[in-house]
Design a protein around this nucleic acid. Structure first.
Lengths: 189, 189
DNA sequence: TTGCATAAACTAATGATATTAGTTATAATG
DNA sequence: CATTATAACTAATATCATTAGTTTATGCAA
């Protein structure tokens, strides 16, 4: 309506996050986003570089949030406690921001050619490596373990999100058992 | 060109599988598929019910294939051997058919209202439960373990597929360590 | 205050895509 | 050989992303 809506990159991004979490990243179209913001589609191009630019911004935002969430979750904890807390925080993040998390996955395709994304992804790996320090693993074993840890939490969170778990069985307990079984296996190595 | 191309549902489906594995499920458009088959887009509607119908058919096909692959993989094996073999087979399937596997995930959204899909998904859970029998778990624990096992293999396979693993580190070994660590944890419970 | 520059939002147009309706020609069947 | 079923077609519509060019509000400098 009005010729000045007061939009900027940040407000567009936040609306996109909301939309993504509500309807899934696939359904985040510029048309839907523009309508949500009471604006015509082309107006969005003043703030973001088309759909690819929006997705990249979402991915970046999601990775930053995820990293902060993980960092926050392990404050004052160490060893298995820290890993369990981080796993729960990761899961909680995906539950709270399913669409934003999807965006961070799509972004992996771009990370090959995007230094900023790549750096952020690497910094998350580094964070996880620090969480594992208490386990006193060999450097290479630690890297394998980061992959394992990520696979577990990512796998559980995405299967759950895609409605892959349809049995009547407490999900939190499934997750807790999964992660503690893995940690138990790590200790007995 | 010719007024009879000799298409049927099966040939359309197989072309779609090829396309999906090459370019990803998101890029499987009716336009691209029609071109691959030397046909105009609307002609596809004689064989599949639009894009939703195609995706459902892909999901069904993918789940059947995955189930057969898993069943095949455990022939003559039991206990940890069987689980490791099944895990490797699952991973190999996703590597061989990345797009088809994506299709099976999208399908979870539809499974809520699609009896055939649901039944197939349930039968895969049953198959996994039988693989776990040697572990002599309580019924409820067995269900939690199926979730855990699926989360692990799905998580690893999808992170790998999305280029989530960028470190120079042998992927097969990462997977083997992950799964055997989990199995070790299961035994020491 | 006035005027100018910046940029936010617009309209219009183009090119994909999916889908539906209705048509044509081929193949199979009696 | 005639009929019928249907595979593939053309044409039309709707949605979406994108670009080009236009309008207008805002902020800053004179």
């Amino acid at each position: 309506m009005a010729y000045r809506q007061g939009l900027d990159k940040q407000s567009v991004l936040l609306a996109a996050v909301e939309l993504a979490d509500q309807v899934g990243i696939e359904q985040v179209t510029l048309a839907a986003l523009a309508e949500k913001l009471n604006v015509k589609t082309p107006s969005l191009y003043n703030h973001i570089k088309g759909l690819p630019g929006l997705r990249r911004a979402l991915a970046l935002h999601g990775l930053v949030q995820l990293k902060e969430t993980l960092k926050e979750s392990v404050v004052g904890k160490s060893g298995d406690d820290a890993l369990m807390a981080a796993g729960l925080a990761y899961l909680a993040f995906v539950r709270r921001h399913p669409g934003l998390y999807e965006a961070t996955l799509i972004a992996n395709d771009m990370a090959a050619t995007d230094a900023e994304l790549q750096e952020l992804a690497t910094s998350i790996v580094s964070l996880m490596l620090r969480m594992l320090e208490a386990l006193q693993l060999e450097p290479e074993a630690a890297l394998h373990t980061v992959r394992g840890f990520r696979s577990i939490v990512h796998g559980f969170a995405t299967l759950e999100g895609r409605y892959g778990f349809r049995m009547a069985l407490d999900r939190d307990e499934s997750f807790h058992r999964l992660l503690s079984t893995y940690l138990k296996g790590l200790r007995s190595s």
